[in-house]
Simulated assay, not measured.
Amino acid sequence: MTLLFDLPAASAVPVLGAEARYPVRRVFCVGRNYAAHALELGNAVDREAPIWFTKAPAALCLSGETIPYPPGTASCHYEMELVVAIGAPAFRIGPEAALDVVFGYACGLDMTRRDLQNAAKAKGYPWDTGKDFENGAVIAPITPAARFGEVAGQRIALAQNGEARQDGTLADMIWSIPELIADLSRLYHLAPGDLVYTGTPAGVGPVAAGDVLEGTIEGLEPVRLEIGPAE
């Protein structure tokens, strides 16, 4: 088969202690998974089912990069998150089997064009332009699951230019990792290469050119991002 043009190579994430990288197939994100964050944005806490949205693999950005301030927005926000990397096929599995398909975990940033997201929400439109954009899914190197251990009460935090902005624990999540994976596997045939961003604690806020973001989760490699001038 002859193609009209070549596509960029697939996005791939470094893996701690390994030479091979983790290729990214899809990026799933869950919204409002920390009650305090939902409330700070004026949203109701929905405990009936997780709220899902997606980002294209082209939105992926590796930790340590400097990115231009995103286009089309005057209010780009950081959201510090735990990212789960899927390592085995999963379809309609229960929470009791969900951790068996986890390859590893990473620190991530779900960057959000908040003004575009809010405008879309007000009209009942999808969030796509507010969430899915170049460099909007930042990720640190993946730590294999066996090395990280159990997801429990590890601290999750973010500093902006050295000032603390977000500070919580993974135990604050409304939906646990097994519950999230089980729910997502009802909707999709999950497979190796799928990333799951699991929501953010309270304390989100805007970034500006020159800002340096540093996010941490106990036991994982930190994520770092610098915001450059707009193009």
Rank of each mutant, 00 (worst) to 15 (best):
L39N: 01
E40V: 11
E40G: 10
E40K: 09
L41S: 10
L41I: 12
L41M: 15
G42R: 11
G42Q: 07
N43V: 07
N43D: 14
N43S: 14
N43E: 12
A44C: 03
A44K: 13
V45Q: 03
V45Y: 11
V45C: 06
V45M: 09
V45S: 06
V45W: 05
D46F: 00
R47E: 14
R47Q: 10
E48G: 09
E48C: 06
A49G: 00
P50H: 07
I51R: 13
I51A: 10
I51N: 09
W52D: 09
W52N: 08
W52Y: 15
F53A: 01
F53G: 02
T54E: 08
T54A: 13
T54W: 11
P57R: 09
P57T: 10
P57C: 07
A58R: 09
A58L: 12
A59P: 00
L60D: 01
L60A: 01
L62M: 10
L62F: 07
S63F: 08
G64L: 01
G64N: 02
G64Q: 02
G64K: 01
G64Y: 01
G64A: 02
E65P: 00
E65N: 14
E65K: 12
T66K: 01
T66C: 02
I67D: 09
I67E: 08
I67C: 08
I67A: 08
I67Y: 12
P68G: 07
P68N: 04
Y69I: 01
Y69T: 01
Y69M: 03
P70A: 12
P71I: 00
P71Y: 04
G72F: 05
G72R: 13
G72W: 10
G72I: 00
G72M: 08
G72S: 07
T73V: 02
T73S: 06
A74H: 11
A74K: 06
A74C: 03
S75K: 08
C76T: 07
C76D: 07
C76P: 02
C76G: 06
C76M: 12
C76K: 05
H77A: 03
H77E: 08
H77F: 12
H77S: 03
H77V: 07
H77T: 03
H77N: 04
